[in-house]
Simulated scan of single mutants.
Amino acid sequence: MKALFGHDAAVAAFRKALESGRLHHAWLISGPVGVGKALFAEKAALRVLADGAGPPVDAPGLDVPDDHRIARLIQAGSHPDLARLERLPRETGTELARSITVDQVRGLQRLFATTASLSQWRVVIIDSIDDLERNAANALLKNLEEPPPNSLFLLVSHASERLLPTIRSRCHQVRLSALDDDAMTSALTAALPEAGADEIAALRRVGEGSPGRAIAFRGLDIDALDSTMRTLAAEGDPTNARRSQLAQSLSLKAAQPRYEAFLSLAPSLIASVAKERRGPALAEALGLWHRASDLAGSATRLSLEPQSVVFELAGMLAALAPRR
């Protein structure tokens, strides 16, 4: 299984709880997208099941050797005491369903209807709990209120503040933060062993502490896009030439992935500039960030015309430039 980088405190807390024999039955694992929440849940589940079934694991953190019998079972998708809930593919096409259904949650009763097979533990991973439909969340709440013996729920959340308060209150909450530069470099180097130092550095910069985000941008010439945006923010665009050129290049059908990357990067760049400002300049930058976030967030959902969206967002970047 992949290595987990940058979350030593959370790993240590989980190990301490496991070794003490007082492991809380539900862990709510929250934080930004792409920082390793799902991987934390997978590794925690594997460690619990491997330690419970044996042979004893002599490895640091949440690591389990790949040749451990429990690791092989989980890799094959055939461990009888582990269940995963996630959005399922629709009956037609390759798109996923909008939510995790109440029937999926009720299906967990099959796991808990009999005793555990290989150890005392039964583990459920939900990735992500944000995707539960309302009835499914209420059904899950019953399990969290009266958990079956020796059960462990690992709940991945990208926006835990939106969950039912009754769910949050029944979980031990652990938040995984964005990775620092050293952890990002290690994570990207491990994930992309063929990448050079310059590419790793560029991906680390645009990833903003999220290896998943950085890897999603790979192959899109993000370094050049980032440079163009930073030039707009530093020098402005008095003739509209720069943003017109950018809008035209990102509106092409073949440029759809770079367009989507721009929608993510533009508000983030405005936010990073805002952090360096004070007083009226900060207020102005925050106003631009709110506008950019709203526009970028609705552009795909509302099928807005890409050229117009890019031109407007680029104008907000240009508005950050010092007035001459």
Results as ranks from 00 to 15, higher is better:
R230S: 10
R230T: 04
T231G: 14
T231K: 12
L232E: 07
A233M: 04
A233Q: 03
E235W: 08
E235T: 12
E235V: 08
E235P: 02
G236M: 08
D237Q: 03
P238T: 08
N240F: 15
A241H: 04
A241Y: 06
A241P: 01
R243V: 06
Q245T: 14
Q245G: 15
L246T: 11
A247D: 05
A247P: 06
A247K: 01
Q248M: 06
S249H: 01
L250A: 05
A254N: 00
A254I: 04
A254K: 00
A255L: 04
Q256L: 14
Q256S: 15
Q256D: 14
P257E: 02
P257S: 01
P257F: 04
P257C: 00
R258Q: 15
R258H: 10
Y259C: 09
Y259A: 07
Y259L: 14
Y259E: 11
A261N: 00
A261F: 08
A261T: 01
F262W: 07
F262H: 02
F262D: 05
L263F: 04
S264F: 12
S264A: 14
L265E: 03
L265C: 00
P267H: 05
P267Y: 07
L269V: 00
L269N: 01
A271N: 05
V273W: 02
A274D: 04
A274T: 06
K275T: 11
E276I: 00
R277T: 10
R277E: 11
P280W: 00
A281C: 03
A281P: 00
L282P: 00
A283M: 11
E284M: 14
G287C: 07
G287F: 06
G287W: 02
L288Q: 09
L288G: 05
L288V: 10
W289H: 14
W289V: 08
W289S: 12
H290D: 14
R291D: 15
R291E: 15
A292G: 07
A292N: 06
S293G: 12
S293F: 11
S293M: 14
D294A: 14
A296D: 00
A296H: 03
G297L: 03
G297N: 10
S298T: 13
A299P: 02
A299G: 09
A299S: 10
A299T: 03
T300H: 07
T300I: 13
T300Q: 15
T300V: 12
L302G: 03
S303V: 15
S303F: 10
S303E: 13
L304I: 03
P306C: 07
P306H: 03
P306Q: 06
Q307H: 06
Q307V: 13
S308C: 13
V309I: 09
V309C: 07
V310W: 11
F311C: 15
M316Y: 10
M316A: 13
L317M: 10
L317A: 10
A318P: 10
A319L: 07
L320V: 09
L320E: 08
A321C: 04
A321G: 09
P322V: 15
P322R: 02
P322F: 09
